[in-house]
Amino acid sequence: MIVAVASGKGGTGKTTVSTSLALVAAEKGKVCFLDCDVEEPNAHIILKPRLSGQEAVRVRVPVIEQERCTLCGRCADVCAFHALVVLPQEVMVFSPMCHGCGGCWHLCPAGAIHPGWREIGQMEEGECGKIRFVHGRLKVGEAMSPPLIRAVKQRAQAGALNIVDAPPGTSCPVVAAVEGADFCLLVTEPTPFGLHDLELAWEMVSQLGIPCGVVVNRSDGRDEPVEEFCRTRNLPLLMRLPLDRDVARGYARGIPPIAVHPAWKGHFRELLHAISERAGLKCAKS
């Protein structure tokens, strides 16, 4: 089973929820944690895995054989991402713009382009106690994160509870992270901004056909707008974590909330139970 943890924006405490869920679930069964927030991975600060493996993740990029090139201009016309420029004397490749679609090397009439490789980041993996841990680190300045996110997700283990920590927001990288999940937790804050971002995230996840539920973090007890939102969308509000200074302080020092307040374990066990029930409705087989 794959459970994605997402939020419409950063700073809602998404990783607090995903890591606590992993720690609690690992007391009962196999857990694999996949940190797909590849621009700013930070679950390792809480889970403190022992990393044992590293792998470069690469994407295709055109390599031009300038001697064969006739400067016909076809490749630059074909590239929808404007990653190629045909100069009077050579062809220039702007690798960061390239999506690796292959259009240029298939269509070059002179056969002057062949596919090469470009590294976009590193995948690291290891263990933290009984949890299998994988995360991706996107290279600084790199904009193409979905291939790295998919590489991390490929490490999901059959028969385990796979927890995907998705990047914040609602753009392509989030879709890449959440796609294929059996359930998606949407973490939000009870503020007007939080609600707006929750709505965007919910729209995206429901378009992907993934059942979801809401977790309100740092609740001050006045969550009526979120409750109202959930009620009208028939969206389950699965958990509420109160605003808690000790938890915030612990988190800043890399201590998981359930270690600060062992009583919170109960909340996460219930959350886990609610997720398996709802995800089970969709995928009784896996």
Partner: peptide, 16 residues
């Protein structure tokens, strides 16, 4: 109208 790479595209036009 381009989603990205507008400057590169305009520069290509200058060359053409």
């Amino acid at each position: 109208g381009a989603a990205g790479g507008a400057g590169i595209q305009a520069a290509q036009l200058m060359i053409k």
